[in-house]
Design a protein around this nucleic acid. Structure first.
Lengths: 298, 298
DNA sequence: TGCTCTCGTTCTCATTTCGAGATGTCTGGG
DNA sequence: CCCAGACATCTCGAAATGAGAACGAGAGCA
């Protein structure tokens, strides 16, 4: 009599992927089964959930109303499993997300400490943009994540984990900000940025606008090392936390320029879902976080 | 991969009933199936959820942690079904609960009006005590209920539906409160009360204590008519809303005594679950409620 | 117009799961 | 010592599930 959770999860996947074929791949099954599950769900509910058109499926009104329930129930199911298995001792899987920059300089020590204290926890780390991480935490695919402030969401708990100072990074030959401004053409330097969704990217855009380089060229990169390497090679400038740049292997090949705007200071938050149950592994992780020396790293 | 909702519902039933045999009856199935579902769930989770002893089953720690999730997911499933089917036009089932007294005098007109405006809604009415009604609303078996104030609960929305004046009802021969006090023995009259959980009953207890009849005999009845009949027959006194008594068929055979304590005034609230989706049938019902003349019935 | 690619649906079939009833086992009480 | 209550186990037929193959409809293109 109750709705089948497998059907609901399938339905969510189809809604997210926009088509049965793609959803089938994601779910590691064949199309026909996905079709079946969706049809079963539609039969149970008595209404069409998707409009079929030649390029995939889009949600109907009923589908849109159902989707948030499907997602919440799937999240609850995961949480229920953890809660039931959790006897108070941190163990089992723990999925943490992080911005690339935080992962590079803040987490190695923290993760080592965590593993020392709670060896039974299998921690997986996923790096992504702040926007994707927040989505992941809300959807339940991540237990917690390090993201750039500010984040405001009723379903999220957040705490400041680190303070970062953003600095402008350029090739070594620009010894100061003024040298940089003088040494670049009117349209400004090339800006090396992460993919959309990265908060630091937005700050860099803002900075370039303030400098009078609103139309500066963007060059999109995926990795931190790649970015610093390109800067060292003189391809352009970028904006990164000071701690990241100073510990870079290519420290000697680049110039660091402090900024005196107030927003060069940015907090890294640790966010987690508000939920009824305290997941021990996650509690253990946050207890490592608040263990002094990590938190107040400048 | 996700937990099976049928298993969770079965699990909830076993937890509530305290045994597989009773749960099987409630679920309209046989014991063996319930055993299977519970074992399947325990296998999936990897922990025992019940302690088996000769007189039934009791929850283990893991079971206690799981139970609230199981209940919430079951409630979400019901709500999801309604939300998906609900296209904005009030129709389908609507389960309303009410105190017996409210049902007797306040609801007949309201329900008639509601049915006239929204004939496609199949309304079912259940009368019970305030305590049971609140539980029903929280569990999702009722969409809304008329209960006695005060109710404070974070998951409930409430609005004043009616104002009631509680009056003491006695046999006809006691023409006034003083006559009643004089005409009864030192230990006080027999108090005719509803079953435990009824708010009016608590008020009556309070009243008798104030009158100096703390040990007055209680006589428990199930129906309103039965209660008034017994009062008319001189078996004792009771406390009821004035509107109920005045419209009683046995109005001429009883005496009504107004009370001048402040708590003789009591509000009847309409409570419903806070939920993401606005269920049209319920919205239609509350719109009838707020349609003036019903609300401010003295 | 005809070809082809993409995508969803339908059909079939082996496998698994489920539900009902009957039977087995354990415990406590008369 | 046997019985009653309660849960576990076994078996069997029905139903659901998942994988694969074939089918059909529409879009883009020559």
């Amino acid at each position: 009599m109750p709705l089948d959770l497998i059907d609901l999860v399938t339905f969510s996947a189809v809604a997210r992927c926009g088509g049965i074929t793609r959803a089938a791949e994601e779910l590691n099954t064949v199309q026909s089964n996905v079709t079946q599950r969706v049809k079963a769900l539609e039969a149970e509910i008595g209404t069409a959930l998707f409009e079929r058109h030649s390029r995939g499926m889009t949600l109907t009104g009923a589908g849109r109303r159902l989707l948030p329930y499907a997602q919440r129930m799937a999240a609850l199911s995961r949480e229920a499993l953890l809660a039931a298995r959790d006897d108070g001792e941190p163990k089992g899987p723990l999925a943490i997300g992080s911005m690339e920059t935080t992962a590079a300089v803040r987490l190695p020590g923290l993760l080592a400490e965590f593993h020392r204290r709670f060896p039974k926890v299998t921690l997986t780390l996923k790096t992504a943009t702040t926007a994707d991480l927040v989505t992941g935490v809300l959807e339940g695919t991540l237990d917690g994540a390090f993201v750039a402030a500010p984040i405001e969401h009723g379903d999220l708990l957040s705490a400041v984990a680190f303070h970062e100072e953003l600095v402008l990074v350029s090739a070594l030959r620009f010894s100061s900000l003024t040298a940089l401004r003088a040494g670049t053409s009117g349209s400004g330097p090339t800006a090396l940025v992460f993919r959309t969704g990265c908060t630091y990217r937005q700050r860099l855009e803002q900075l370039l606008t303030d400098f009078g380089w609103p139309s500066a060229v963007r060059f999109e990169l995926g990795t931190l090392d790649g970015m610093i390497g390109c800067v060292a090679a003189g391809m352009g400038v970028t904006l990164l936390p000071r701690a990241v740049v100073e510990r870079s292997q290519q420290r000697d090949e680049i110039s660091i320029h402090a900024l005196d705007t107030p927003w060069s200071r940015v907090d890294t938050l640790f966010v987690q879902r508000r939920s009824t149950h305290q997941y021990s592994a996650l509690t253990g992780f946050t207890s490592c976080l608040t263990a002094a020396d990590h938190v107040i790293a400048a």
